[in-house]
């Protein structure tokens, strides 16, 4: 099991008032699964992704990812877990502007020092996502689709157990969005990582994909 959430609740305080983003979500995702988390804006799907990505802590309930109970880990252990086990792809690409493509891919490992061969692996991954000729380009010199490819390469450098993508095509045109999805799917098949995609866009759902629908902080469909 790559993810097991039990009665997961998350309450934010906004303007002094409690706002329940998740209201008791229980969910299990199998290893190597490809899951879509869908739902309207403000339904709580991004909150679920943040909890699964060890970026935030639940108000109550438990969440286990790759066999680790995230609620039992310290901040530093969560950082290490994100570095070792998780890959992220965000809607806004979230690359670092003053680093070139190779350096952006290596960012997760800059803090602890690069292992031998990691730079070569980063270049190989960039080649795999179609950016072999753009290695020394900075984000401003790349198109939106190319930036998202760099983000995908960055997420895959660590061979993550779980790849989390939050609206990965939200800022791309439909043709580029389709290319990115095709790339994510082929990498999923090649590398076997479990994938969770949070999206409004249901066009890319294929037979065999897991679909989880969230509305008002609750799971309303789990197929």
């Amino acid at each position: 099991m790559i993810l097991r959430a039990t009665d997961l609740k998350k309450t934010y305080t906004i303007g002094g008032r409690p706002v329940e983003a998740l209201r008791g979500v229980s969910l299990e995702l199998a290893d190597r699964s490809f899951t879509f988390v869908v739902g309207p804006s403000g339904s709580g799907k991004s909150t679920l992704m943040h909890l699964a990505g060890a970026l935030d802590r639940p108000t109550s309930g438990t969440i286990e990812v790759a066999g680790k109970d995230l609620t039992a880990l310290t901040d530093d252990q969560l950082s290490e877990f994100r570095r070792e086990k998780l890959g992220f792809v965000f809607q806004a690409f979230n690359l670092i502007g003053n680093l070139d493509a190779v350096e952006n891919v290596l960012v997760p490992f800059y803090a602890k020092g690069l292992a031998p061969g990691m730079r070569a692996k980063a270049k190989e991954l960039l080649g795999r996502v179609g950016l072999a000729e753009r290695l020394d380009h900075r984000p401003k010199q790349l198109s939106g689709g190319e930036q998202q490819r760099v983000a995908i390469a960055r997420a895959l450098l660590k061979d993550p157990a779980l790849l989390l993508a939050d609206e990965p095509t939200g800022e791309l045109d439909s043709k580029t969005g389709a290319e990115i999805f095709a790339l994510v799917r082929s990498l999923h098949r090649e590398r076997g990582a479990s994938v969770v995609v949070v999206t409004h866009d249901t066009r890319f759902i294929e037979p065999g994909d897991r679909v989880v629908r969230i509305e008002d902080g609750k799971l309303v469909e789990n197929s």
Binding site: D75, S79, R82, F90, I96, P108, A111
Partner: peptide, 16 residues
Amino acid sequence: VPEFGILKANGWSRGD
């Protein structure tokens, strides 16, 4: 601020 968010999401700790 967003850059630090990216670094933290990618495994950078407070100490890093």
